[in-house]
Deep mutational scan, measured.
Amino acid sequence: MTEYKLVVVGAGGVGKSALTIQLIQNHFVDEYDPTIEDSYRKQVVIDGETCLLDILDTAGQEEYSAMRDQYMRTGEGFLCVFAINNTKSFEDIHHYREQIKRVKDSEDVPMVLVGNKCDLPSRTVDTKQAQDLARSYGIPFIETSAKTRQGVDDAFYTLVREIRKHKEKMSKDGKKKKKKSKTKCVIM
């Protein structure tokens, strides 16, 4: 069974824990209790493949930012979460993405942009803004509501699919490099 290491990042209060708990335990946590770091595991079937999701729910508070490099190193894919009623959390996505790329030393890291709290009427981040940002990053965008469960499975499952595509691409690139290195030079 394939294991996928997913990391949920975003500013404090955007609903990272609520999304994760909704996926794992099928219930909505409405009281806000700032996370330092929590880890969850769940076995699911995605596109006919049974897999184990190892999900790291991270601290959004700035005082825990020193811990970010460590979990970013171990993560295979990242859910970059903002709240649709919090423009600052949307603007912060850029910083999370840049930090992930720096730590992973790669421009090509599996990510999904997630606009959470889409059940709320007080939207300050337009869907088109988020779609445009995701398009500019070359990553999928999904709106979710941890409260109603809308888009929750889709967000995590899409990230797994992005990781699969990335692994497939990397193995193809690896095979191309191996083929090239088999060419021999004969000096007579």
Rank of each mutant, 00 (worst) to 15 (best):
I36T: 00
K169Y: 14
E107F: 11
V29I: 07
D154T: 08
V160W: 06
Q43D: 01
D108Q: 07
G15A: 10
S122K: 10
K16R: 01
D57V: 00
T158R: 12
R41L: 04
V29E: 05
T87N: 08
V152A: 07
V114Q: 03
L159C: 09
A59T: 15
G15I: 09
K5W: 04
A18C: 05
F156N: 08
S145P: 05
A11H: 07
G12Y: 06
E49N: 06
Y40S: 01
I24C: 11
T20Y: 00
M72G: 08
E31R: 03
P140H: 04
V152T: 11
V186S: 14
V152G: 06
E162F: 03
T127V: 08
E76Q: 05
I100N: 04
L120Q: 03
G15W: 07
I139L: 13
K177W: 07
C185F: 09
K128E: 11
Y64F: 15
E98R: 09
F28Q: 00
L53W: 03
L120M: 10
E3T: 04
E107K: 12
K147M: 14
F141Y: 14
E63Q: 02
V109G: 03
F28Y: 05
L133E: 13
K169R: 08
Q22S: 07
V109M: 11
F90A: 15
H166R: 09
D57A: 00
Q61W: 15
R68S: 15
G60D: 08
G151L: 13
P121W: 12
K88N: 11
T183C: 03
L53K: 03
V109P: 06
T2V: 07
A83R: 06
I46Y: 08
C51Y: 11
M72K: 01
V8F: 01
K128M: 11
G115H: 05
L52F: 06
T50P: 15
G10I: 04
L52P: 01
Y4L: 13
I93W: 12
L113A: 07
V152E: 05
K184M: 03
Q129G: 14
S106R: 09
H95M: 15
K176S: 13
K16G: 00
K128L: 08
K176W: 05
S39Y: 01
K178N: 09
R164F: 12
Y71R: 00
R135W: 13
V45G: 06
R41N: 04
P121Y: 09
T2A: 07
G12N: 11
I100S: 03
D105P: 08
F90G: 05
D92Y: 09
K184A: 05
R123K: 11
G48M: 08
V9D: 03
T2H: 12
Y32N: 01
I21D: 03
D33K: 03
F78N: 03
G151Y: 13
N116S: 13
Q25C: 08
Q25S: 08
S39I: 11
K128N: 09
G115I: 11
E3S: 04
L159Q: 03
G174R: 08
H166Q: 12
K42M: 15
D173L: 13
Y137K: 08
T2C: 07
N26V: 05
G60F: 03
M67R: 00
D33Y: 15
A130W: 12
E62V: 05
G138C: 14
I46N: 06
A18H: 01
F156P: 04
R123C: 12
T58A: 06
V9M: 15
S122E: 12
E63A: 02
V14Q: 13
P110G: 04
L159T: 07
I187Q: 15
G77Q: 06
L113Q: 03
A66Q: 10
L6Q: 02
K42S: 06
S181V: 13
T124K: 11
I36W: 00
V160Y: 09
A155W: 02
D119V: 03
K182Y: 02
T124F: 09
V44K: 01
P34W: 00
V152F: 04
G138W: 05
E107Q: 11
Q70N: 01
V44D: 02
K175V: 08
V45T: 04
R73A: 11
S122A: 10
R164M: 12
S122G: 13
I36A: 00
E162T: 09
D126I: 07
D54T: 01
S106F: 11
D69V: 01
V109Q: 07
A146L: 01
I163M: 12
D33V: 05
D154M: 09
L52W: 04
S17G: 00
Q129V: 05
G115R: 04
R73P: 02
Q131C: 13
I93M: 15
K177F: 04
F28R: 00
D108P: 01
R135M: 13
T124L: 09
L19A: 14
L53S: 05
Y4G: 04
R41V: 05
L56Y: 02
S145E: 11
E49Q: 10
F82E: 05
V81C: 12
Y137D: 13
H166M: 05
T158D: 05
E162P: 01
G77W: 08
Q150K: 05
M170A: 15
V45H: 05
V7P: 02
S136I: 06
G75F: 15
M72I: 14
R68Y: 15
T35D: 00
Q70L: 00
K101R: 11
Y4T: 14
R68E: 15
S136P: 12
Y40N: 00
E62M: 14
I55T: 10
Q22G: 04
D57S: 00
F28G: 00
K117Q: 15
D30R: 06
L120G: 14
V112K: 04
K178V: 11
K177P: 15
T158G: 10
G13N: 11
K128F: 08
I187S: 11
Q129I: 07
Y137C: 09
E49F: 06
S136G: 11
Y137N: 12
S181F: 09
N86G: 12
V7C: 05
D108W: 03
Y64M: 15
K184N: 07
F28E: 00
V109F: 11
V9I: 13
K16I: 00
T35Q: 00
K180M: 08
V109A: 10
S39E: 04
P34N: 00
L120H: 06
S17A: 00
G138I: 15
